[in-house]
Structures are given as C-alpha cells and as structure tokens.
Design a protein around this nucleic acid. Sequence first.
DNA 1: TAAAAGATGGACCGATCGGTACAAACCAGG
DNA 2: CCTGGTTTGTACCGATCGGTCCATCTTTTA
Lengths: 185, 185
Amino acid sequence: MPRAIGTRAATVPLLAEVFRCHGYEGASLALLGQATGLGRGSLYNFFPGGKDEMAQAVLDEVDGWFRREVFEPLRNAPEPRAGIRDMLAATAHYFRSGRRVCLVGAFALGEARDRYAAAVEGYFEQWVQALAAALRRAGRGPAEARGAAEDGVALIQGALVLARAAGDAAVFGRILRRLEQRLLA
Amino acid sequence: MPRAIGTRAATVPLLAEVFRCHGYEGASLALLGQATGLGRGSLYNFFPGGKDEMAQAVLDEVDGWFRREVFEPLRNAPEPRAGIRDMLAATAHYFRSGRRVCLVGAFALGEARDRYAAAVEGYFEQWVQALAAALRRAGRGPAEARGAAEDGVALIQGALVLARAAGDAAVFGRILRRLEQRLLA
DNA sequence: TAAAAGATGGACCGATCGGTACAAACCAGG
DNA sequence: CCTGGTTTGTACCGATCGGTCCATCTTTTA
C-alpha cells in the first residue's frame, strides 16, 4: 500500500483548506471530494471514520506543523529573542499575512470545539507554554512571562478575526508588528 | 398587531443564543424553533425572509446593544479613562466573563462573513474607532491611539477564542485585567 | 500470469436541511 | 354572534446531508 500513504498524506492539506474556509459543519462531503478530486469511495477508503477522521487528521497535521515549525524552535532557539522573532515570522507566513484563518480558532468558536476538545485545548496551551518559556529565558519572571504569552497568543488570534472581519489583511500585519515590539521590549 | 411586535422583539435574543452557540450553518430551523418555542409557521410569520432575516435581526440587535452600551458611552464619557473602564466592564458582562462567545466574531471566521459583510465590518470598525477616540481624548497621539485600539479589540476577541478553546473562562478575565492596565497606563 | 489487495466512482440509503402551503385556532372591531 | 386579519401547528416539498455498498478498475505480490 505505498500509494495509499502518499495519497492520504497529500490529501490532508486539501481537506484542511476546506475545513478552514467552511468550518466543520460547512465542510460537506461534496466539497471535500471536490477539493481533493476524490470520490466518496476513495475518501472513505483513506478515512474509514468519515468526516470525523478527516477532521482529526487535519488537526493532527496542524498540530504537527506548529510543533515542528513554531513551538520547538521557540523552546530551543539559542537566542530566545531571535526565537520569538522567528515564531512571529512563521506565524505570519502560515496565516498568509492574515488572509488565512486559524482552523483551530474557527473550531474553537463553534460546536466542533467539544468534539475535538483535546486537540483544541492542546494547540493553544502548547503555544502559550512555548512562548512563555522563551520569555522566561529572555529574562522575564514566571508570572509575567505566562501573562505576556497568553496576551500574545490571544492577540494573534484576535488579529486573525479582525483581519477576516474587515476583509483587510493589513490589520494583521500591523498588530503583529506591534506585538513583536512589545515582546522584545 | 400589538402582539406581533412584542413577540418578535422578545424572540430575537433567543435566536441570538442559538446562532452564537451553533454558528450560522449550525443553527437549524429545528433548533431555532425549539429555542423560541415557536413552530415554523410563527417563525416565518415574524421573519418572512427565513433564516437570513433572523440572522440579520440578531446582528442588528447586537449592533444596537453595543452602540448603546459600549460605543456611545466610550465616545461621550466625560472622563475618557472612566469610559474605557466602563467599556471593559460592559464587555466582560456581555460575554459572561468569557463563558459566552462573540457572535460577530464567530460569523467573521466562517462563511457567514461574506453574507453579512457590512454588519461584520461595521461592528469591529465602530468598536476600534470608539476606543481610539477615547484614547485620543486621554492624551495619546492619533496613530498611537488607533494602533492601541486595534490591539485592544483584537485582544478581546482573541481572549474569547482562548477562553472557549481552553474551556476555562478565567483566562478571559486575566487578559482583560492586563488590557485595562495597559490602556490606562 | 494468476490471485490478492487497494483504489475508485456512482448508485443508493435514511435523516435532515431550509422553505412553502394551508387549514384550523385565535382575536379584535362591528 | 359574525367577520376580518393574524397567529399557529403541521404536512409536505425538493435538495442536500453523512454514510454505505458494490461492481469495476489498478496495482502489488506470489
């Protein structure tokens, strides 16, 4: 089954985009099939658990990406301030400078939150903890670091909401620039 | 038709709660009817435009509430710093200290954004402008005030995302407390 | 090359979607 | 008591939902 693994893995990002744009309830099998170019048979061959398994796979992939590209670098950067700068750059890149919405955030606000509670909780908690660790290494006290990390992650999520609401990605860039200034101050 | 007006007006908050919890697509006529205790006949009698008109009515009511209770006081408070404090208190009260989600924010992240683009854009823009005006009156420069207002509104929205994601309303309170400190500094 | 395993599209399922039709029930002013 | 319009529940509509099934291909393995 060498093909299956590759095909399934290649499919997940396409599914992710549908969930991101339409939400969990809005991502119909018809849309999912259309976005991937796969019929129902193929979809259920790769994801026997149906829509639920697809969403779980998408959440796993998002978790993996952030863990690899954001959280770990943030914890392990030799220079914590450079790690924070890189985290913000990776975040801006991932969210297409505000033109893309956060899948986990969108899930969190809807009914899907309860269904995927563990993944949703874990995503934000990891982010906050990784950022707090970097801030501590940069010299801040434990409580202050945790608070600033909560503020930072919340601000990023809010910036995505505002950018999407206004239909103006620029506001995301402005907010992130000010956040960087504040975190590195 | 004295009854109709009262009944329709009394119905809107109940509809709002359904849209808030389930999103636009998730708010089915069955749920809407159940929450209001009204059959399809009554619902379509009060809202001939169907689900679309119900959502519009809900958005109008939210807009009215914030305009009345948040934006106007923020602009007209004799003492801008007190106005900012009151805005944050009203916000915390409205969102049930983080146990409630922002309907407009939830709409903004989903497909409903485009359908109700004007209402969604207006809500956040009014909020940012009202807060920026208060900050200017409190002595900040125009650019700095606008930036701090964008950050403030985004932070509130992000705090709601985080609180709902974590299933822990306390994080909302912590973020708002720090925001107040920063805005009044 | 034969057999086993995987991949694929489409027909089909019951349930539910948003919306309509309509006939009873209700409730004023005469 | 009638009578007009309003309010209400319910049956029903076509469309779509997520999911199952299966016959048919393709690919891998023996």
